[in-house]
Computed example of a mutant assay.
Amino acid sequence: MSAELLDMARRIALQAGALAAERRREGVSVAASKSSDVDIVTAADRETEALIRALIALERPDDAFYGEESDAAAGSSGLVWVVDPIDGTVNYLYGSPAWAISIAVGELGEAGDAGAEPTAGWRALAGVVYAPSTGELFVASAGGGAWLEHVGSPDAAPERLLVNRGAELAHALIGTGFSYTAGRRAAQAEVLRTLLPLVRDIRRVGSAALDLCAVAAGRLDGYYERHLNPWDHAAGALIAAEAGAQVAGQNGAPATADLLIAAEPELFAALHGALLAAE
């Protein structure tokens, strides 16, 4: 089942990525704002999600759907698709390559409710993060490992992804992101001010999905962020976990909007402690 779902997610992500890339070439403008006037959505976000949703419904009409840009829909199959049509919309707007299509599918938990947050207690089965600007396609299935495929390079074999091991906090390259509301940003800046002297350096790319894939690929040692939505990390979290990362929230709880940390287990513990001390 996981392999079939992964194949479907891969095919849909490639089609969605082609559409989003075409719209980027045509020119992008802001269609609306969300949590603040700098938290924006483009027409391409909405069009790309509509395409993804339609393609899922065509193949699996009984599955639930939970996306960033449209209303959630319940299903009867016990599976839910969690979609961010363009993760890194501000990067997309400005023409920066760090944006991606994020698609995950998993089993609904007992607490899951497609009208609220169906990822509560869910179990991810397959996840895909596709960055059309670079041709990098990150994929994972539950128990099947995490892999990097190179779209447009047919001779390039998929690469097995494994997290960095043995990095001490002082030598760790850590990724993070920030909220689009001023008050939350101020609080995040204070945490960062305390954390920065304790690590090698900090990176802020602007896409949670790609940050999690960077942990999986060893391009970051760890990553943390608060105030994420399920669609921001559903696929990337599975990819990081299948590459050997511990992905969790505060005090071992599942990752939620309160906190998500991803790193190999020993670094996870050190980063978790440093973040709690910085609060």
Rank of each mutant, 00 (worst) to 15 (best):
R46Y: 02
L5G: 04
S33H: 15
Y224N: 00
A214F: 04
G166T: 02
E59G: 07
W99F: 12
S76W: 04
A64H: 04
V199R: 01
Y130H: 08
A240L: 07
G88Q: 01
T89D: 00
A186L: 13
A54Y: 10
L276S: 15
S96R: 14
E264H: 09
P265K: 01
G152W: 00
R193C: 14
L51V: 07
D113F: 04
A16H: 10
A243T: 09
V83T: 02
G27I: 13
L276N: 11
A20L: 07
V163M: 00
G88K: 08
V80S: 07
G106V: 09
R226Y: 13
V38R: 10
T134E: 08
A98N: 13
Q250W: 15
E68Y: 05
L148A: 07
A142H: 11
A31S: 09
F138W: 15
Y224V: 09
R184C: 08
A208W: 04
T194K: 12
A277P: 04
A270L: 08
P61W: 08
R200A: 15
A240N: 08
A9H: 07
A187Q: 13
S35K: 15
L137I: 09
T194V: 14
R23Q: 14
R123I: 01
L196Y: 04
I56Q: 05
L275W: 06
H171I: 03
L259M: 13
A43M: 08
W81D: 06
P132E: 00
T256H: 06
A43N: 09
H272V: 11
R200T: 02
G206W: 11
S96K: 14
N251T: 09
T134L: 11
L79F: 12
L196Q: 01
V28S: 11
R204P: 01
E279N: 14
V82E: 14
T134M: 06
P254G: 02
L220R: 13
L267E: 06
G145Q: 00
I52E: 01
A253G: 11
R203E: 04
A170I: 07
G218F: 01
T48Y: 10
A31E: 10
G222M: 08
A216P: 15
E107I: 07
A100F: 09
A44M: 05
S96I: 12
E136P: 12
N164D: 11
M1N: 01
L267C: 10
R11V: 05
A64Q: 03
G244A: 02
A189I: 08
P254L: 12
A104G: 11
R165E: 15
A170T: 12
L169I: 13
A20K: 09
A32N: 02
A44Q: 04
L79Y: 14
T176D: 10
A270D: 14
G166Y: 05
E242S: 05
T176W: 00
V151M: 03
D62S: 13
A114M: 01
L162H: 15
